[in-house]
């Protein structure tokens, strides 16, 4: 089955991983800007990173027939530095019209601090001025519930936001319902230990239905499995779910959500 991974950090994966993804049926990846594992020292560092995301990664993905899309921001972890964050936000518009740039992301909260909230709101403001879609990171572990509620408070207070163009990612059992009831898209991340499993993601599809739900691997520099979406496909098949339902979550839904971005041009595989 062809699928699209809507959240994966290929900049931190080897080229072999692209080959493996292609063999698994992945035809598209969406890569939000994220924390590299250390705090970058300057806006120039982010400029180089955005260059890598918008120029090199699409080329590298293309060697294996995978279409690559990206999102730009300063992530929540580094957003604690408001001065740096403002320099980066000021630079982002220079990259927004590049092919494959889908919007602003992955913005969000990390430890749910005041500075993080300030920078989150300034990203939202940029997205509204440039008519971008938004991809949101919700915090890890014990911070997730509180942070997701805070994020939803900020989103719902802004009447400019079209909720159908916003993806709230890394939802789990205690955050998925308010996200969906709020009219946003919800992403389930299949990441070992700290996030969800293919089995629990399948449970949530069964409970809430497939509308506005995505699954992703968030494969990155940490212990992660970039092929996790294929694991979800298998789990759904083992439970007897029809191919049409599975394809909706892993292929049709990403196309529907990303199709709202002006820079999303997707060549569907010839079947």
């Amino acid at each position: 089955m062809y699928y699209i991974d809507p959240h994966i950090h290929m900049v931190s994966r080897t080229t072999d991983d692209y080959e493996t993804l292609a063999k698994m049926g992945c035809v598209g990846v969406s890569e939000p800007a994220f924390w590299a594992g250390y705090d970058r020292g300057s806006a120039a560092g982010f400029r180089d990173y955005f260059e890598q995301l918008t120029a090199f990664e699409p080329k590298r993905a293309g060697w294996f027939g995978i279409q690559h899309y990206t999102w730009l921001c300063i992530n929540a972890k580094e957003a604690e530095n408001v001065v740096l964050a403002r320099d980066v936000i000021a630079m982002i518009p220079q990259f927004l019209d590049r092919p494959g740039v889908l919007g602003i992301g992955e913005i969000g909260l990390n430890k749910n601090t005041r500075n993080e909230a300030i920078v989150f709101l300034e990203h939202i403001d940029l997205a509204m001025k440039t008519n971008e879609q938004i991809l949101i990171h919700t915090p890890h572990l014990e911070d997730k519930y509180q942070g997701t509620r805070m994020i939803l408070d900020m989103l719902t207070a802004d009447s400019r936001i079209d909720r159908s163009r916003v993806l709230v990612d890394h939802v789990e059992e205690h955050t998925i319902r308010p996200v969906l009831e709020g009219g946003f898209w919800a992403g389930m991340t299949l990441y070992p230990v700290s996030k969800c499993t293919p089995q629990r993601a399948a449970d949530m599809v069964e409970i809430y239905g497939p509308e506005r739900l995505l699954v992703n691997s968030a494969g990155d520099w940490g212990p992660s499995k970039p092929t996790a979406v294929a694991d979800f496909i298998l789990e759904m098949r083992k439970r007897g779910h029809p191919e049409g339902l599975i394809r909706r979550v892993v292929y049709d839904n990403p196309l529907e959500f990303f199709g709202q971005s002006r820079n999303f041009a997707f060549a569907a595989p010839d079947v």
Partner: peptide, 17 residues
């Protein structure tokens, strides 16, 4: 699963803003 997630979660205060 949802209730256990909340056991391991920080409280949300609606007056945070």
């Amino acid at each position: 699963a949802e209730r256990i997630q909340l056991v391991f979660s920080r409280d949300y205060d609606e007056t945070w803003r």
